[in-house]
């Protein structure tokens, strides 16, 4: 009986090894199975909820929806956002708080999406860009509102 077990051991081992080799041999000869996507040439479509960086959408009149309420700055867990406000003078002579500069530190951001959720006017959102590497760290500190932009009429 010992000899029978021994021979069947050898036989089964050979069989299972050959089975494995057949699988890898199949992959070796069938190059269509290759699942690698060559990144810079082929770019994968990202899902809608992919979180790459915080951006502030501007419409065609260079107007944004940010009231400068600093809700996003307070929501941010690691001080990524710094909002500098100014006072605009409305036509009827009243002073009104408005956004001066929206400073965004991409190097500190963890893409947690809390600022977007905190925003009462949907002024900021997450973009799908992800190639953020730069040669100088200071270039990661961004100003989100475009120069000369102002708040859209009707947004409170």
């Amino acid at each position: 009986m010992f000899l029978k077990d021994y021979i069947s051991d050898v036989f089964n081992a050979t069989k299972s090894l050959l089975k494995g080799m057949r699988r890898t041999g199949y992959y070796f000869t069938h190059h269509k199975e290759i699942i690698t996507q060559q990144y810079p040439e082929v770019k994968q479509a990202l899902p809608e909820r992919f979180r790459g960086e915080v951006v502030m959408p501007h419409d065609e009149n260079n107007e944004h929806a940010c009231t400068g309420c600093t809700a996003c700055e307070l929501a941010c867990p690691n001080a990524t956002i710094k909002i500098i406000t100014k006072f605009d003078v409305t036509p009827d002579g009243k002073k009104k708080k408005a956004l001066d500069t929206f400073v965004y530190h991409l190097e500190l951001c963890t893409m947690c999406n809390l600022c977007v959720q905190a925003c009462p006017t949907d002024a900021i959102k997450m973009a799908q860009t992800f190639e953020h590497s730069v040669y100088d760290r200071s270039r990661l500190t961004k100003k989100l509102n475009e120069p000369g932009s102002k708040i859209r009429a009707g947004v409170e």
Binding site: T24, G25, Y27, F28, H31, E33, I34, I35, T36, Q38
Partner: peptide
């Protein structure tokens, strides 16, 4: 190794 592991 790459072709056997379905890589390039």
């Amino acid at each position: 190794s790459a072709y056997m592991q379905i890589r390039l």
